[in-house]
Structure formats: structure tokens, C-alpha cells
């Protein structure tokens, strides 16, 4: 592989990481829920995209219009019925953290079980625009380029929504200080539910994008949870642009390591970066929060 090919492959992977990490950082930063079932929500969306694109006169792109709002609604319901009771009874942040980790850990297996029943344990994939495209003197599959463009477009759209509108600014204010958010008239309970739902919508977008160029399996969610978590911590918890940048960096590093060293070292490289960040920059590569 040439350097350009590696770089493009890295950006495609990194764009996906960035997209899903933004969703996790919303859920953890604003709704204060550490969602261990996050990767399984991504996989669920991948399967949903797989089903929807096979419908008459549908494709994965038009499928986004169903899968992403579906993710939002699913996330909202999970928050209202499963998590909000925990939030209400938790006397402090630490208790909520433990309770939400245990609950979403359970949810992980429920989602996985349902997917196994519906789709089995085999690797699943579908063909979408698997045609070579020439770019910067190298050839790439069209579906990967679309995946990259989609990931960046959706990620930046959500970023603009959160930073350029009063409504989005209010969500970020809840991440900074829930108490003060109430004082200016923000309904923090609803803000948390919406943030969790938006995070799930981003997971759904990520899952659809992934399904366009990768194979996936019902039990593959945990890898995505881990990757998203690493990217969130690298970028700084609650920092949206940090998540975007850290996602791209991780994608490029992983692809470079697997191309020039050994594919078996990809995970090792990921965790080495993760440990280095935790040891030397625990507040994330980009410092400032939110």
C-alpha cells in the first residue's frame, strides 16, 4: 500500500471513530451516563441499515433517514424508562456512575441477545457502491469515500447544532454546571434525556456508515464501545472537537501500524496511546472541557 492509500484508509476509519465518539461524549458529558451498551447500539444500527437498504427502492443513504431518527427515539426511551429512575434516586455523581455502568452492562447483553436471535452469530455485510474510484493517484472503493464524507458531514452538523444554537449551548451548559443551568431556566432532566437520545442517534449514524464498508456481527459491539471510550478520553470528556480530532488521529495510527508493522499490533498500538494519554494528559490532548 502506498502512503496515500494508507492515509485515506486511516481517515475513513478515523472518521467513523470520530462520529461515534461524539455520541458517547454527549451521553457521558451531558447526561452523565457511562453507556457500556454504546457499541451494541452501533451494531444494532448496522443491522437496521442492513434490513432497511434491502427494502424496495431504498439504499443505505436513504436508510439514514430512518435509522438515525429511530436511534434518537430508542435512546430517548432507554433514558426515560431505564436510566432516569437511577438519576432520580442517586444521591451523588459517584452512585449514578456505578448504577449506570451496571445497568448499561446488562443492557449490552439484552441487545446482543436480541440481535443473536434475529440475525445469528455470523458476520453480516451487504454490497453498496463497491466500485473503485481514483483519487490522489490511488484507487479507493466508493463506499469508503462516502463513509468518510458522511461521517465528517454528520459530525460537523451535530457540532454546529451544539455550538451555534442557543439550544445546543444550553445542552453544553448542563455539562458545565447542572445547578446553574437550572438557574437560567434550563430543564436539566429533559436536557439529559435529549443529550442521551442525540448520542444514540450519532451511534445509529455511525452504525449505518460502518455497515457500508465493513462486515459486522452481533457480538462485535464491545470493540466499538472501547474504541469510542478511548477516543473520548483522548479528546477530553465532553470536548466535541477533541473527539473529532482524536478519532481521526486514532484511525490513521491504527491503519499505519497495521500496514507498516503488523495488523496484529493494531489493538496494542491503540491501548499504548490510551495509556500514554491517561498517564500524561488525563484531561485529554486538547485540555479545555466542553
Amino acid at each position: 500500500m502506498t502512503l496515500t492509500t494508507t492515509l485515506i484508509a486511516g481517515l475513513v476509519l478515523g472518521g467513523t471513530y470520530a462520529l461515534v465518539a461524539m455520541g458517547l461524549t454527549l451521553q457521558y458529558g451531558i447526561a452523565r451516563i457511562m453507556n457500556l451498551a454504546y457499541g451494541d447500539m452501533i451494531i444494532t444500527a448496522a443491522f437496521a441499515a442492513f434490513v432497511v437498504q434491502a427494502l424496495p427502492s431504498m439504499n443505505p443513504l436513504t436508510g439514514l433517514a430512518i435509522v438515525v431518527p429511530g436511534g434518537f427515539i430508542f435512546g430517548y426511551l432507554v433514558y426515560v424508562f431505564l436510566l432516569s429512575p437511577l438519576v432520580k434516586r442517586a444521591p451523588d455523581k459517584a452512585t449514578l456512575e456505578v448504577d449506570s455502568i451496571l445497568t448499561t452492562f446488562g443492557l449490552l447483553f439484552v441487545i446482543q441477545g436480541v440481535l443473536l436471535v434475529l440475525f445469528g452469530s455470523n458476520y453480516t455485510s451487504y454490497t453498496f457502491l463497491n466500485v473503485p474510484v481514483s483519487i490522489f493517484g490511488t484507487t479507493v472503493a466508493a463506499n469508503r469515500l462516502i463513509a468518510l464524507v458522511l461521517a465528517l458531514t454528520i459530525g460537523l452538523m451535530f457540532y454546529a447544532l451544539l455550538t451555534r444554537t442557543r439550544w445546543g449551548t444550553a445542552l453544553r451548559a448542563v455539562a458545565v454546571s447542572p445547578q446553574s443551568a437550572k438557574l437560567v431556566g434550563i430543564n436539566t432532566d429533559r436536557a439529559a434525556a435529549v443529550a442521551f437520545a442525540m448520542g444514540t442517534a450519532l451511534a445509529a449514524a455511525g452504525g449505518t456508515v460502518i455497515s457500508m464498508y465493513q462486515t459486522f456481527t452481533a457480538t462485535g459491539g464491545v470493540v466499538f464501545t472501547m474504541k469510542a471510550l478511548i477516543v473520548v478520553i483522548m479528546g477530553g470528556v465532553g470536548n466535541l472537537l477533541g473527539a473529532l480530532t482524536a478519532g481521526l488521529v486514532l484511525g490513521i495510527v491504527e491503519t499505519t501500524v497495521s500496514t507498516y508493522l503488523d495488523p496484529g499490533l493494531t489493538l496494542a498500538a491503540t491501548y499504548t496511546i490510551f495509556l500514554a494519554v491517561l498517564l500524561w494528559r488525563p484531561e485529554g490532548l486538547f485540555g479545555r472541557r466542553v
Binding site: 442557543r166 449551548t169 444550553a170 453544553r172 451548559a173 455539562a175 458545565v176 454546571s177 446553574s180 443551568a181 437560567v184 434550563i186 479545555r288 472541557r289 466542553v290
Partner: peptide, 13 residues
């Protein structure tokens, strides 16, 4: 105040 936000954002909120 919302320490991580700008003066303008604090006022807008």
C-alpha cells in the same frame, strides 16, 4: 457561571 463557555454564551443562556 459556565466557566467553559464564552461571555457571549453565558449571557445568551
Amino acid at each position: 457561571i459556565f466557566t467553559a463557555l464564552t461571555v457571549d454564551e453565558n449571557l445568551a443562556l
